[in-house]
Design a protein around this nucleic acid. Sequence first.
RNA 1: GCCGAAGUGGCGGAAUAGGCAGACGCGCACGACUCAAAAUCGUGUUCCCUACGGGAAUGAGGGUUCGAUUCCCUCCUUCGGCACCA
Length: 845
Amino acid sequence: MKEKETAIVPVAEAKPKPEPRSGDNKSYQPQTLEKKWQDKWEADQLYRSVIDTSKPKHYALTMLPYPSGDLHIGHWYAMTPSDARARYMRMKGYNVMFPMGFDAFGLPAENAAIKDGIHPMKRTFQNIERMRKQMRSMGAMFDWQREAISADPSYYKWTEWFFIQLYKAGLAYRKMSAVDWCPNCNTTLAREQVWGDDRHCERCGTPVIKKDLDQWFFKATKYADELLNFDGLDWPQTVKTLQTNWIDRSEGASVIFRTEAGNHKIEVFTTRPDTLWGATFMVFSPEHPLVEAITTPENKQAVEEYKVQAARQTDIQRGAVDKEKTGVFTGAYAINPVNKERIPVWIADYVLMSYGTGAIMAVPAHDERDFAFAKKYELPIVQVIQPEGQEEAAVLESAYSGAGIMINSGPLNGLKVTTDKGRKNPGIAAAINWLEKYMIGKESVNYRYRDWLISRQRYWGAPIPMVNCEIHGWNPVPDDQLPVTLPEDVEWKPTGESPLKLHPTWKNTTCPVCNGPATRETDTMDTFMCSSWYHLRYLSPKYDQGPFDEAEYNYWMPVDTYTGGIEHATMHLLYTRFFHKALRDIGIVEGHEPMIQLRNQGMVLGEDGDKMSKSKGNVIAPDVLVNRYGADTVRAYIMFFARWEMGAPWDSQGIEGSARWIKRVWTLFTDPVPSGAKPTTSEVTKNLRRKVHQTLKRITRDFETFEFNTVISSLMELMNEMYKAREAGAAGSDEWKEAQELYLKMMAPVAPHITEELWTQLGKPYSIHQQAWPTVDEAAIKEDSIELPVQINGKIRDRITVPAEATEDEIKSAALASETVKKFLEGNEPKKVIVAKGRLVSIVM
RNA sequence: GCCGAAGUGGCGGAAUAGGCAGACGCGCACGACUCAAAAUCGUGUUCCCUACGGGAAUGAGGGUUCGAUUCCCUCCUUCGGCACCA
């Protein structure tokens, strides 16, 4: 039906016997054709991006790969639509930079070395060589002169330098703490790298354990509030939500309690200071440093036993939500500072040392966990919030966390409490004011977000450029000694210590302060440190006066469009934002955010719908597809077969459709005009031109919004119409020539090789990729007459054809004049006639 | 439990601003070409009905509206994140 409006060939005139077409397409040989153009583009440096102040710049960035050895279909899925978008932006008139590099440090190469002894450096650079070649087969517009490799000393020199800048700015510190340790990777992990209910390693899936270690941290929490601010960022809401939940800001108050004996200060954080008068006991985490000091002699044994038992349990066991609460009385009492009540101090493993202060005030009447604990150990429960409508304090069946009126709360009795958080809640606001007035507490904010643990007990990473001297402690390696390079002669052993520590001489050095003997830090940095600034290294990968050339920075930054997987929402994407803000405060970069627009692609699954993995044998190899179909077909299929941000299972048969499309485009442009074609009519050419410009409008919009699948389907539709128009004799007309030209331009970002070839064959000037994106001729899109469906009581009963310029009244009378409508009306007057201009007519009886 | 995303033919998916559901493609069926097959080309392809025509249908149920895949409410399913977070 829609075809009736847009068909180039009026239905009545459709040819009865279409000319058979030469379908073998022997002349389309992507393997030679693609190679030819790739070589030419490279020789001509067609994709070299240099500063050009006469044009607006566009920094398009796609997440750099780890050099695992083979390009995966997932890489194609991430990179080729990003490439198509970058190409589109280039045709739109932007000076586009689209760089590529390698996140080359990391565990897999070192783990492989432990197995076969091949040095990670050697393996990594061999892999890079191979992947670079595979990437070239995509025909992407990567500017290889901007390539950066994080494992290259000329790169990691600056990773080390950045560490020192953060250290000097007070943003890097060393701390002994219980950290997550992967027993398989033999290293510590940042909290973000521990996933799932069983708390497994993000890389290898092994459940992590806790270890007490001296480690380097970055003060990411200093930026917690700023990281929650996404102003000016065009990022997917899901990513912003994931980061917000990860940081998990909670507003409340910190309150100082004191022990009855010894007057020890105990700070607690609470989101419900309005319930302070109901705090009837305190609970410490078993690891809390004060536990030993306050425990009375008669409770000592029980407390020690409980601590041992808690320590033996894993985080998973401790974290099981439905686990029955356990705990032990320390024998000590604290004084509730608001009402001077004497309250017992317990230890229990439901209080975690890693959140807040490791100690809580327990308000059993209004907190479910405290309630369960109080019931079990028969501790007093005092209600301090009375629900609206409740007459007197009844015996509570469960903790009440809703709104109400404050009772049993001394000076604050009668105040209203809502379910709002923080100061928005009048009860909480009053409680905070009261605490601050009597100097026993203050408004406070807590985060789940932790400082970034960057130490890794591995060889294959950027060395942490710090030196430890017995007299002068930790000091950074002087700038003129950077980079601290990795020694080549190391032994590969899975010891849980960095191979650098086991190297006989590497760690020995001199103290930068006194020149006396000192030792190097033997841990290396988390590879996320390397990838936090790679977008800056692309600016000037060979620059040696600093991490980047400022002229390049000033022109290209910030990144305009960043594409990559959503799995990095709380890892790389958060690290790189923190890193940028830290550098900004140090004065190295400008602006508040490194990447303005972010778009996430989904995942390509195996044909069985499962995640692709070698062990499942469902991996799709892009090289095989490129050999068989050519890169243009693979690119087209990748953009066509799923919504990009969603992803979908691979379908090996589906790619045939894209292959057919590419071949049919080839045939359309290279076959002689069919002999049986009639002379054309102005109706045919006008309809063709309309379809061309409608398609251009649609495709332009879709490139803007990253809807690549409909870019392809629109191109397929237009091609089908062009075949029909050609049958109807349109070939040779000016409209046909325009259609050919626009078709190739629109298709160029998707299929760069075939379009370049056909463009050249049309006799157009090289290169199609330097052509301007066409503009829509709105006048050409306008229809002369339109067909409107006529609804009667919501059901479509007829269609009327009216001039496009018809007024509402004209449309109305045309609809009512229709025989079918008259039949349905049966002589009655319609109650109502609604004309939705250009859409339909709705008659209500 | 909390937060978020998504449910449309056999399949992937289309549907500017609330206005013709199923574009485009895969698959399938039939036909043309062929000795035959592949390739290619053409036609058809949501489901149901005594098929002229009619009815139902966008996870389920309800609401708003002349009109809902689209807006609102309740629920179900799948996926992702967080989770004894004080």
